[in-house]
Amino acid sequence: MLELKNVKVVFNEGTVNEKIALSSVNLKLEQGDFVTIIGSNGAGKSTLFNAISGAIPTVEGEIILGQQNITDLPEFKRSCVIGRLFQDPLKGTAPSMTIEENLSLASQRGKHFSLKLFSHKHKQEFKKALANLELGLEERLETKVGTLSGGQRQALTLLMATYVTPELLLLDEHTAALDPKTAEKVLEMSEKLVKEHNLTTLMITHNMEDALKYGNKTIIMKDGNIIAMVEGEERKNMSVDDLIHLYSSTTHEYTDRVLLKQ
């Protein structure tokens, strides 16, 4: 499904500030895999996402999605088949346009943008989709997105990213900026949508519990490398403490919680 072969990303190449953000990352995912990614700041998690989505260029390696080699495709072409959510809930929607207009754009994903006049004929479909979010947004199609709360906007972004079913969904700490209750709701919505469409998904999180609770695989990253992958039985029987222990022993970063336990 998604395959990364020796993907390397270097920032400020050839200068004194040169930094290897991703060093020869290899990863192979099957259709329907839901992978959670953990790792400290600067481990290369977001860089990995940016490389996959085409926001930054790779120095070496190949990225294959489905049957297609997308390594050299521009960002906007890749986004025909890749849905993305950012940590910043304001990044995924156009604030001065209405909910309906935003959804209309999302429903055109991967299609040709023509001179066809914007019409309200998809209104019922939009309403139905919005009703699934259970936020009451279905009654507010004419509302400017800029007036919605962060949680509402992130939920709307989630809907927009999956409205036309993507081949790959990238969730970059998409609930980190929301309050705990809203965060949980958006996470549950994400899981529901992922299951519904059997989406191949990558999710970055800093929450160890979420890392285990959601998905079927967990990856630990450090210094631009994938240093561990947990899946199958091992993952099923793993407790949060086990994961923290694994994280600490592989990354050599000991947190208070781990030290206290010992």
């Binding site: 926001a55 906007f76 950012f86 990044k91 995924g92 346009m97 209309s104 754009l105 999302a106 055109q108």
Partner: peptide
């Protein structure tokens, strides 16, 4: 039109536009 809508979105939020193909 659809192009017009995309044009307005480009001025509004370029990140979102690129992520919407």
């Amino acid at each position: 039109t659809q192009v017009g809508l995309a044009l307005r979105a480009t001025g509004d939020n370029e990140d979102m536009v690129r992520a919407s193909s």
